[in-house]
Amino acid sequence: MRKSLSLSAAIPEEMAGSRLDQALAGLFPDYSRSRLQAWIRDGCVEVDGRHLRPRDRVEGGEQVRIRAELEANDNWEGQPIHLDIVHEDDELLVINKPAGLVVHPAAGNPDSTLVNALLHHAPELARVPRAGLVHRLDKETSGLLVVARTLGAHTRLVEQLQARTMGREYEAVCVGVLTGGGKVDAPIGRHPVQRKRMAVVLNGKPAVTHYRVAERFRGHTRIRVRLETGRTHQIRVHMAHIRHPLLGDPVYGGRLQLPPGATEPLVEALRAFRRQALHAWRLSLVHPATGEAVSWEAPLPDDMVRLIEVLREDARHLEVEPWDV
């Protein structure tokens, strides 16, 4: 479903000499520059009755009229699904998503998603692109997500994401013992054969992941991860690329690896942990309304807490203490 949009304004004299797309971005700050450029190219923008290019300069005083269409989320329905709301105000929501909850409706998951829960909690999100979602987490990844409640907040948060100024930090447990932290700078794209998977490929999009050691065990490492970019499955693909896949990852993790002499509780815990051990624990950004730098944290979910406790106990059982860094 789509809804019609009609906007009009006069270009101020002080904008004389600016590109058309720059002038429109100043006049209509609720809409991203890329969206405005698309409308210009699609012929949805008239300047004194003329169709111009995004790069054409304005003289000031022209009358601008925009007639366009916006996607409406009318086909998505709100559902009474519990939300763990970490923060809420007039501009945004911060949600602590549990593992197992799909973020966005799709062919295989038409409902019972985070979007359905959000629309039930805040029906006005039907007027915001993608129900306010600015970024996503995989179904089996837990942790913090920010949701924009207004069109202007959505535009400004997406700009932060694109400018790489939004901070997203994760906790994870990977297979193998890392000797230290590092950076993975490797492009990510669709797997050339298995199209439902992502992979490091030469023609992929730039992707940068930073990681550091938080705690070492006998056959695994607890790590803190910071993203520069936000590609699909980025952490999972990058850690698998350096041969330290996330514990429990059903897609990129390979066969289950048991440390030699693993205790029975550890064997049971590793076999029972069927999701990637990945949690988005910290989110930081500039508030779209106040301009204030804000951040939130979410503690590890119970399943990861229990997993780490078993890993520690296994190390103590064999008189090999975990190494806190």
Rank of each mutant, 00 (worst) to 15 (best):
R190P: 03
V64D: 00
P123D: 07
I235A: 08
R306S: 06
V103D: 02
H238S: 11
I40P: 01
G132P: 09
S284P: 00
V64R: 00
H104V: 03
L285M: 12
H317Y: 13
N73V: 04
R274P: 07
A148L: 11
D90G: 12
V225T: 04
S4V: 03
V128S: 07
L278E: 03
P123S: 07
S4Y: 02
A186I: 10
I66H: 04
E169R: 15
A262L: 11
K196M: 15
V193C: 11
V286D: 11
P245G: 07
A298Y: 00
R127M: 11
G254Y: 09
C174A: 13
V184P: 03
G254R: 09
P129S: 13
T221Y: 05
H317W: 13
R149E: 06
Q276F: 10
R67Y: 02
V251Y: 12
G248N: 05
R255P: 01
E59M: 06
R130Q: 13
M239Y: 11
Y252T: 02
D84V: 01
R149F: 12
H87K: 00
I242F: 10
M15D: 08
V251E: 14
E91M: 06
A153K: 02
P299Y: 08
G189W: 08
A23N: 05
G60R: 01
A269K: 08
E321L: 14
K97N: 08
E124L: 15
V184Y: 08
A16V: 03
N75Q: 08
G26D: 09
R67D: 08
D302V: 12
K205E: 13
P288M: 07
L161N: 02
R35A: 06
R231A: 08
G291A: 03
G291W: 10
A126E: 12
T229R: 09
D324V: 14
I308N: 00
V128C: 05
E309S: 13
R218M: 12
E169S: 14
L144F: 10
L119M: 04
R2S: 12
R312L: 01
R197K: 15
T179L: 15
D21R: 01
R195M: 10
T165I: 15
K97M: 05
G254P: 07
L246I: 03
H287C: 02
A117S: 05
V86Y: 05
V267I: 13
D89P: 08
P12A: 01
V94D: 00
R255E: 15
I81A: 01
G219R: 04
A280D: 04
R127S: 15
L300V: 04
V146T: 12
Q257I: 13
A72R: 06
L307H: 02
H87L: 00
L161H: 07
L161V: 07
S284H: 03
L133I: 15
R53Q: 12
G143D: 10
I235L: 09
Q37W: 00
I95G: 00
T232I: 04
E297W: 02
G132D: 10
E228A: 12
V237L: 08
G189C: 04
A214N: 04
L114E: 01
S295H: 14
G181I: 10
L36G: 06
T263Q: 12
L258G: 04
V58W: 01
L133Q: 05
A126W: 01
T165G: 14
R306T: 03
G261F: 08
M198G: 06
D314H: 06
V94Q: 00
T165F: 12
H317A: 13
A122C: 15
S112L: 10
T263M: 13
V45W: 02
R255Y: 09
E59W: 03
M304T: 03
